[in-house]
């Protein structure tokens, strides 16, 4: 509600835990896997997505309905998180939810780049971040990427996006801009200095460090795999503990070193099975899903160890996002005519 006063962890954590527990489990996913897109929409009507499905049901159908209902529910769900929380908790959740501001900015960039219509861009927004609806409208209304960069001036993303725009003009690809948005988000997320190791601030930092480490690991592996001749340091996000920017370049060149490095880190135990798979099968998708799963497990672990902190809330946000991604994968996979096994591989289920 507001950033002043003491944090109300008890209330928010109780609500969030209940919602976390009522997310889809194995059984629901198994049912969903056997349904068509219409069936999925009907199934969602009996769950937490009821309100969105009912509201959007008259306008859309099939996979579009599922897609819009997912985005809509995600936005309202995270808005209510902000409405409940007070004090420092509000502060931390709000900072974390800027993720969706970053997502929206990237959507605008991609939309303009691919000449999408205003409605198409708007449909992909997740209105859960800090940007007001008005500001999002201004972003959508922009006629060129340059105008968007100018509009972003004064926000958190401004100082990062502006220098990246020159790179964009030189190279003609969106990568520098998207990367700048990601870096703006992550580098403003982690508290600069944490003095007391037991404070909630330290926990928050620990969780976010894990997320940044995983993202860096994923970027590094993707680069190593694609063999692209880009400078890995440009993709590096500050704030993690796994890599240093300077050593990333040499690690990317030798993939086995990179894998060893991850194995020796503090995430090694959680990821060892996935790392073995990666070395044997050489499948990056499997490893990325293993990273997602490990992050989910780590966040759950943190939220059990520190029940009265921001961790359960962040764990819930991650799990909810994962659920939305899973349902989307099922609906899209169904539409594309993939088999059950193929879709199953795309899911990340704890």
């Amino acid at each position: 509600m507001s950033a002043s006063g003491p944090a109300n962890y008890e209330y928010v954590v109780a609500r969030v835990r209940h919602r976390r527990a009522s997310l889809f489990g194995d059984d629901e996913y198994r049912k969903l896997l056997r349904m068509g897109t219409g069936g999925i929409a009907r199934f969602m009507e009996d769950t937490a997505y009821e309100a969105s499905i009912n509201r959007l049901g008259s306008r859309y159908s099939g996979v579009d309905l599922v897609e819009y209902a997912l985005n809509d529910t995600l936005a309202s769900e995270f808005d209510s998180l902000l409405r409940w929380s007070e004090g420092r908790l509000y502060d931390q959740v709000a900072k974390y939810l800027r993720k969706f501001d970053a997502w929206n900015v990237k959507t605008v960039f991609r939309g303009l780049y691919s000449d999408a219509t205003v409605d198409e861009i708007r449909a992909d927004f997740v209105d859960a971040g800090e940007f007001s609806e008005e500001f999002l409208e201004r972003l959508v209304a922009a006629d060129s990427i340059e105008t968007v960069v100018e509009t972003l001036d004064g926000t958190l993303f401004g100082p990062y996006v502006e220098p990246a725009f020159e790179d964009y003009e030189e190279s003609g690809t969106l990568v520098p801009l998207e990367n700048a948005v990601d870096r703006a988000y992550y580098e403003n997320l982690v508290p600069r200095r944490v003095t007391n190791q037991d404070s909630p601030q330290a926990l928050y930092a620990e969780f976010l460090t894990a997320e940044i480490d995983f993202r860096n690991a994923r970027n590094a592996l993707r680069l190593a795999r694609s063999g692209a001749s880009v400078d890995p340091e440009e993709y590096f996000i500050e704030g993690g503990t796994l890599f240093e920017a300077s050593e990333l370049a040499s690690l990317v060149e030798r993939k086995s070193d990179l894998v060893d490095r991850i194995r020796e880190s503090r995430y090694g135990d959680e990821l060892s099975a996935a790392l073995n798979d990666l070395e044997e099968a050489d499948s990056l998708i499997g490893f990325e899903h293993a990273l997602d799963r490990a992050l989910l497990e780590y966040s759950d672990h943190l939220s059990y160890v520190y029940p009265l902190s921001v961790c359960p809330v962040l764990a819930y946000i991650l799990a909810k996002e994962r659920e939305v991604d899973n349902i989307r994968a099922i609906a899209r996979g169904r539409e594309a005519g993939l088999s059950e096994d193929e879709i199953q591989e795309e899911l990340v289920i704890l």
């Binding site: 008890e10 928010v12 109780a14 609500r15 209940h18």
Partner: peptide
Amino acid sequence: GIGSAAVGAIAED
């Protein structure tokens, strides 16, 4: 503390 957690849980269910 317990009360606010309980109200949160009741609000959900």
